[in-house]
Design a protein around this nucleic acid. Structure first.
Lengths: 221, 221
DNA sequence: TATTTCATTACCCATTTGGATTATTGGATA
DNA sequence: TATCCAATAATCCAAATGGGTAATGAAATA
């Protein structure tokens, strides 16, 4: 029998979750808490042998929120698995909860069988349960370049490049040669070259490498 | 119809995956590749409008492995979704593949419906598909920034550039010519050129413009 | 110790590029 | 109308680039 504790400020939410778990017959709800403070108090007064195996924690709660409660509890009771069960899926909450010590993050919208299945898997294999859409967001956190691409706004045309020149610059950045660009936009390679040299003059450089450096660092590409 | 490309060195694996996808009637396999080099070559010769929407990539392949192929392709063809489909689930491979630009990571042990379902979800919502056990490992990476940091320092370099090559790449991005770089670091311009061509091989490109594109978009500069 | 990798240099060749100049067209402007 | 400018195109030339091959020594690794 897997011992579970539930922390959620809405009594009805606690009831719904408890029902889902009890239906499988594999879980026992050893206590419920209405907020983080309440949860920590009940953990304190619990004999060590009666500690829950798994804690399902909502995030937005009065007095002490879920992140804070997980942070404290995961230090004091490191043998317990803390799983966030909430409706929030914004990056900041996910990140904070995980850093606080959550081993899983489930959205309330998941259906009952998915939740019980994942908790069972946590019990058996130790792998924390994560809702797919949350998993993707966590992946993006690891994917550092994505973090860097903080919407750099469309830089105004400080170099006064004409539309055609911007087009050529774009194609040059793709590694195309004059001949290839000409074929692509149906003009002579000589003209492409002329445009390119004009771009160099406007950017005050004299090579592709430098033009591309400016283009990348100034957000033209 | 969702266009899919498959890269796997085992013909039988490709066939199994293709069968799974074709059975749903929602995917069309536009090409298969036996290794990373083969994959990149086929992408190069593909008209822009025929590019795959999704690429399923095995990691362990001869000639050019999956990480390297994803690294290059995700810079050159940023509109394509790259999904790792492999049997490996060790932290290092996961980390490297994600840093290279993979938007999802599926284990081959997943059954056909799960895979098609997750790819469909990728297509509809943009959320990258991640096998649950992989998701848990990624979560642990976020949870232990120390591990992440050390691995990042070692594996930052998904293209395995040597120190000298990184130095040359940096100087190339400054717009210096072989001759100038040679003078700056006291080696022959011939050597600079040799390093440059070696860099091209590692990045799987054949021009300064493309090498710089990858360098900028992958944060090497 | 044997083998592999890295950094180094050289040479050949065909292609591409940068630089400078000249010229025509069509649209916008003064 | 006369003028300016962007886009187009061509030519000549010198320099730089990309691609391939070969070779050496030093350092790290198996």
């Amino acid at each position: 029998m897997i011992r579970v504790a539930i922390a959620d400020d809405k009594a009805n939410n606690r009831k719904v979750i408890a029902d889902k778990l009890l239906r499988s017959g594999l879980f026992s709800i050893i206590f419920e808490a209405a907020n983080g403070e309440d949860f920590l108090a009940k953990m304190r007064h619990l004999p060590e042998d009666d500690q829950p195996h798994i804690v399902l924690m909502d995030l937005e709660m009065p007095h002490v929120d879920g992140v804070s409660a997980i942070g404290t509890a995961s230090s004091l009771y490191p043998g317990v698995k803390y799983v966030v069960l909430t409706i929030f899926d914004d990056d900041d909450k996910i990140f904070r909860a995980i850093r606080a010590g959550a081993c899983g993050y489930l959205l309330k919208e998941e259906n009952g069988e998915v939740i019980t299945g994942m908790l069972l898997n946590l019990w058996e294999s130790g792998a924390g349960p994560i809702s797919p859409s949350i998993a993707y967001k966590i992946l993006q956190m690891v994917q550092q370049p994505a973090v860097l691409k903080t919407e750099r706004q469309q830089q105004e045309n400080i170099f006064q490049l004409s539309d055609r020149e911007k087009e050529i610059l774009q194609l040059l950045s793709e590694g195309l040669e004059y001949r290839e660009i000409g074929a692509k936009i149906f003009i002579s390679p000589n003209t492409v070259k002329k445009h390119t040299l004009n771009i160099y003059q406007k950017l005050h450089v004299n090579s592709k490498a430098l033009a591309l450096k400016i283009a990348y660092t100034k957000g033209l590409l």
